[in-house]
Computed example of a mutant assay.
Amino acid sequence: MIERIETGIAPSSAPINDAVRAGKHLWLVAIAEDPDTGEIVQGGIEAQTRRCLDNLSIALRAAGGSLLNLVMVQIFLIDGADAAGMNAVYREVFTQQPYPVRATVVVKELLAKGLRIEITATAVLD
C-alpha cells in the first residue's frame, strides 16, 4: 500500500504529493517553494537549493526520518553554471558519510516560473 505523507508543502489543489511511503521506502520531491507563502524563493541558486533541502527535511521529519535516511538524490538544474552554487549548499547540508548517491541533470526548463532547481529523493526508514 502507498501512503501519502502529509507535509504541508504540496498544494492541496494539485493532483500531486511531495512524499509517499511504501513500507520502509519513501519517495520525495522538493522545489524551492516557501511552504508559508507558496511562492518560489528568490535569491539565486543558493537560496533555492537551501529551500529545496529544507523542504526535503520537512517531508522526511513528517514521515519520521531525517536527511540521514536518504539513499538517492536526483537534482535537476536549468543551468549548468548553477552547479557550483548548488554544490556549495549541498556540502553544507550533507556532512556525514555515507552520502546519498546523487545524480545531477541539466534540463531545458522546469514547470514553475522562476524555478532553477528541483530535487527528487528516495529514503529508507527504520
Results as ranks from 00 to 15, higher is better:
21 R>S: 06
97 Q>G: 02
10 A>G: 06
88 A>M: 07
16 I>M: 13
106 V>H: 04
17 N>L: 04
80 G>S: 12
29 V>Y: 00
91 R>S: 11
78 I>F: 02
19 A>S: 10
114 G>I: 02
61 R>D: 09
30 A>N: 01
45 I>T: 12
68 L>M: 10
19 A>H: 08
42 Q>F: 01
123 A>C: 09
48 Q>G: 04
34 D>Q: 04
36 D>I: 02
113 K>Q: 13
54 D>E: 15
61 R>A: 15
56 L>R: 05
45 I>W: 04
59 A>M: 06
86 M>G: 00
107 V>Q: 08
110 L>W: 05
94 F>L: 07
74 Q>A: 08
8 G>V: 07
11 P>A: 14
107 V>S: 05
118 E>W: 00
51 R>H: 00
64 G>N: 10
81 A>D: 12
92 E>G: 03
58 I>L: 14
112 A>S: 10
71 V>K: 14
48 Q>I: 02
120 T>K: 09
10 A>L: 09
39 E>S: 12
27 W>H: 11
63 A>N: 08
122 T>N: 05
115 L>H: 00
103 A>M: 10
114 G>A: 04
43 G>T: 03
110 L>Q: 08
11 P>N: 13
4 R>M: 09
123 A>K: 08
18 D>R: 11
18 D>G: 09
102 R>A: 07
20 V>M: 15
57 S>I: 00
98 P>D: 03
117 I>P: 00
78 I>M: 03
77 L>Y: 03
90 Y>H: 11
72 M>S: 06
42 Q>N: 07
114 G>S: 04
67 L>T: 03
100 P>F: 05
70 L>E: 03
103 A>N: 11
54 D>C: 00
12 S>T: 14
104 T>W: 04
49 T>S: 14
49 T>Y: 01
90 Y>M: 10
81 A>I: 01
96 Q>H: 12
23 G>L: 12
40 I>T: 12
77 L>H: 03
24 K>H: 13
49 T>F: 02
2 I>H: 12
107 V>K: 10
53 L>E: 03
45 I>A: 13
60 L>R: 07
38 G>R: 12
89 V>N: 01
85 G>S: 14
29 V>H: 01
20 V>Q: 13
76 F>W: 07
88 A>Q: 13
17 N>Y: 14
16 I>F: 15
68 L>F: 06
7 T>Q: 05
22 A>N: 12
59 A>H: 05
84 A>E: 14
100 P>V: 04
50 R>S: 08
45 I>E: 02
100 P>L: 08
124 V>S: 05
112 A>T: 11
85 G>N: 12
54 D>W: 00
54 D>F: 01
